[in-house]
Design a protein around this nucleic acid. Structure first.
Lengths: 360, 360
DNA sequence: TTGTACGCGTTATCAT
DNA sequence: ATGATAACGCGTACAA
């Protein structure tokens, strides 16, 4: 009988006469030995069950069970040159929109036997290289990233390796294909609508703009509108992290009310900010939209349920996740090129926006 | 000079005299060849840069760059017997609490160079085996799961393979260690508090209970209270998926108001249900808590910001994520056993709960 | 239907 | 400081 140079672990595999080195996982050879076949038959028993005689297959399965055998994924991946993993680089999961994006991404991947590995990076895209490297070292065969890639190391890395990659959330003309929407346009719609209602002094509550093309585009849209429609008084833009965004929305609104009494409309780059602000206005007795109009962004589930219901810009979060997954899968499975897609983000007018009040 | 039996791809690696088979990624050997060293020196240049002469190291790095070389993760994982991946089996990412859990899990993992692969399964734990298998095939060295594992195939698989595993969200006495809180207790607190305020007929809005020990425990706590404090009229328990939970909360409340006018308190197994219901009550002119008390679960960020602020049970979501990650890391890195931890879930009394109204 | 032999790309050991 | 060699565990031509 064949024996490893090491000791047989009798207390663990007591029923088995097969020796497995202590602390080592059994291999196909071990299973084969126990079942009285070769390793390659074991392989077949798992991967092409039909090609092995039923009784032998059962013997192999039993042997595997007895030895606590399980396939070594790394060896398999090496042999097949496929890990079936895609990487996701996301600012945070602790925000409904991004969570929904990853959720739908995962859904679509899993239907094809793929799974996402995720890295959260915060919102600044100028230092994401290490995160991406980690994902690739973990076997990512493709990459989903949020927003325009600003890190030159990342761009070089992607062209160098030819790794399939998509960016999402913002639509960008770029060598790296993107499946997203026009962030300038999404805010431009909102501000133009408010301007049409007569608003001449607004404020914006924005996410962190450093290394974040989505926020930069939106702020640009806001500034352009200020130049076109402003009454001369500066329109404040307050940036805040998306962490504790509801609370931040409430606090920022309080400050705004105190320091900028002339403001008649507030544009929020996330419904979370807007909802926090709206609730704070109700607490302070500010009437919405009679005294102040407020508009959000994202069209979260809560938006239509509030009183007044929240005007906002609907963002196709789930759609982006599905499409990105499908694009990556097609790239990997059928060598299809990833074609950029510009999706719609539509203004949804509800009850929180109205004509500017007379005395302005 | 060494040559593969295949054609040299001159148009692509024009500047290089090294032949790489077409369509194949270069290996360390190729890089070494180009840099005039052996493969193992290339390996050292990447993994232990100090042990190779600087000028040679540079030559190697240049060669790698020129050849578009990047390390093969599967080969590395096979050699090192380590993928640095843990699997996460989660009902959904499209719910703030679970997203936060995964977020904090990822944060802690990434600090140690690990990354999560995620699978979403829905709430029924009786059919998660395939998902888990997929994760393990993708290289998961350990597993985080939500709630008690009901699937026998999974239990056998875990004991068979000895894969480190934790369950979270519910604390369960089980062979699989859990880091969570007592779901019976969390609702018991809430209901006892309402009973002490004089409420004798309540309703519960619950998540899906099939294969879901958290919901089952909570419903049991509710039923036990009904038996102790009820007024004889049955206490309805309405189950609903967590998808579109805000909207569902609003709709269910509407039905309840119409069909069960005697109810004076509503217990929700998620703040999302509670917030939806609360907003609906405001819309209908039902006073909270004067006419009806409502209590949520989870203590989401919005709870204290509403008017009235929402009484709820605080759940340590981020804490669970961090602790589970740390436990898995310790198990893998230091062979430390995973010790079960029962965390607190505390009742937070705010403005949405009050004494039952007199006429009952 | 089953077995033999080899290679996937990396790193550790040992020798130089 | 660097190189030769072997081994990680699997899948697959090819042979039997």
């Amino acid at each position: 009988m064949w024996l490893e140079p090491s000791i047989t672990v009798i207390d663990f595999y007591e029923e088995s006469p097969v020796a497995v080195a202590p602390g080592k996982r059994p291999r196909m050879t071990d299973v084969g030995k126990k079942a009285g076949v070769s390793a390659c038959t074991v392989s077949r028993a798992f991967n092409a069950p039909d090609t092995v005689r039923p009784e032998i297959r059962q013997r192999i399965l039993d042997a595997a069970e007895a030895l606590n055998y399980s396939l070594n994924p790394s060896a398999k991946a090496l042999r097949l040159q496929a890990t079936h993993i895609f990487g996701v680089v996301i600012p945070t999961l602790d925000h409904a929109l991004f969570a929904k994006l990853v959720h739908s991404f995962e859904e679509t991947l899993s239907r094809s036997g793929y799974a996402p590995v995720v890295a959260t990076t915060g919102f600044d895209n100028t230092h994401v290289f290490e995160h991406i490297q980690t994902l690739v070292e973990r076997g990512a065969e493709g990459l989903l990233m949020v927003g325009k890639v600003e890190d030159d190391k990342v761009r070089r890395f992607l062209t160098r390796t030819g790794l399939p990659a998509v960016t999402t959330y913002s639509f960008v003309e770029d060598r790296i294909p993107s499946i997203g929407f026009d962030n300038y346009q999404s805010i431009a719609q909102a501000v133009d609508y408010l301007a049409a209602l007569g608003h001449r002094q607004m404020a914006m509550i924005a996410g962190p703009s450093r290394g974040n093309d989505r926020q930069q585009s939106r702020i640009r849209a806001f500034r352009d509108a200020e130049a076109r429609c402003g009454n001369g008084r500066p329109w404040p833009v307050i940036e805040h992290s998306y962490a504790h965004a509801y609370t931040a929305g409430a606090e920022i609104l309080r400050d705004l009310l105190a320091s900028e009494p002339g403001i008649t409309a507030i544009v929020c780059n996330s419904d979370t900010f807007a909802i926090g602000a709206l609730l704070e206005m109700q607490r302070q007795g500010v009437r919405v939209p009679e005294d102040i109009s407020i508009i959000g962004h994202d069209d979260m589930e809560l938006a239509p349920l509030l009183t007044p219901s929240l005007s906002t810009v609907a963002v196709p979060a789930a759609d982006m996740g599905h499409r990105c997954a499908q694009a990556l899968l097609n790239a990997k499975l059928h060598r299809a090129p990833i074609v950029p897609v510009k999706l719609d983000a539509n203004l949804i007018i509800r009850g929180s926006t109205g004509p500017v009040r007379r005395d302005f």
